[in-house]
Amino acid sequence: MNIVACVKQVPDTEALIKVKADGSGIEEGGIKWVMSPYDEFGVEEALKTKEKFGGEVTIVSIGPARTMETVRTALAMGAEKGIHIDDPALYNADAYATASALAAAIKGIPHDIIFCGMRAIDDDSGQVGSILAELLGLPSVTVITKLDIEGSTAKAIKPIEGAQLLIETSLPCVITAQKGLNEPRYASLPGIMKAKKKPVEVKKAADLGLTVEQKSTVAKMSPPPARPPGKIIQGDDPAAKAAEVIRLLREEAKVI
């Protein structure tokens, strides 16, 4: 089976994020970059699918040179090869441009099933998997927590409010992974050693016959407003202080 897993490199959840002074993005110095956690579920499911049915897993990712570390991490987990799309036109691209580039790369290789994370933890857009499926003309099942493949049919469980859906679709298809789908394995030391020798193609948008088109742009990035400091009510009379608390809750906080 030819299996594809799309991964995105994002700042570590513990990284201290600072917005650039001009609001054009985040300060990247000193940030540790990791594979987006939902993409890890996708890679793990891709590897499990390979282990069950045979075949190979190709990793596709977009980003600057540092993205190669994330591709290698997926190879160290057990994937066979990678495609790294490194084109400045695609750095910080929107969901549509990202999905277009992924589609252009995946069109050129055999694919029976494609895994994505349900969303990337940096911009939280959650659209790439679905747009990718649309561009490839494939069915997509999103936010899934269980997957069974039988022949050319995929049965997926998708949790919804108070229930879960069992969705059946035909292969090839795009699956986006939710937490709970599996427990991603760690890269092993032998895997890390082998990853170095596995093939990774580095491509520009033009190599894929792609003209980058964005449907949206980030106008400005700003940090959430700082929390206002707490207020200490001064005075010696407890009754007066209590009355003041009630007044503030009613008039300022407007919670009672």
């Binding site: 290698r72 760690y186 890269a187 170095k196």
Partner: peptide, 18 residues
């Protein structure tokens, strides 16, 4: 000779993750 800085960093990252 089979090793590299990249490999060393991936190993440390994995150690931290585990």
């Amino acid at each position: 000779e089979d090793h590299s800085k990249e490999i060393f960093d991936m190993i440390l990252d994995t150690a931290l993750k585990v």
